[in-house]
Amino acid sequence: MDRAEVDARIRAIVEPFNKKGTEIDEDTTFAGDLEFDSLTVMDFVAAIEDEFDIIISMNQQAEIETWGNLVDAVTETQN
């Protein structure tokens, strides 16, 4: 699966969590721009894990700050 397809699939997942409809680009941050709290992060990560049948441990999550980081990390698991 290429990066663009991963990006598109995660975009569909994030929609219900993006309550303010914030525009998302590569540098959008989850904690800052999207204002995700820890419970939202858990639900969002769980949805991605189920979509791609992967694990994103909390250790990996700590390295993911931006949308671009996330798409990169998930793309890597698909190749």
Partner: peptide, 19 residues
């Protein structure tokens, strides 16, 4: 590696263990 699951959710735990 730390992998949390939703409170008392047996299916969520099962899926994570399986991966």
């Amino acid at each position: 590696e730390v992998v949390p699951f939703k409170h008392n959710d047996i299916e969520a735990m099962d899926k994570r263990l399986g991966r």
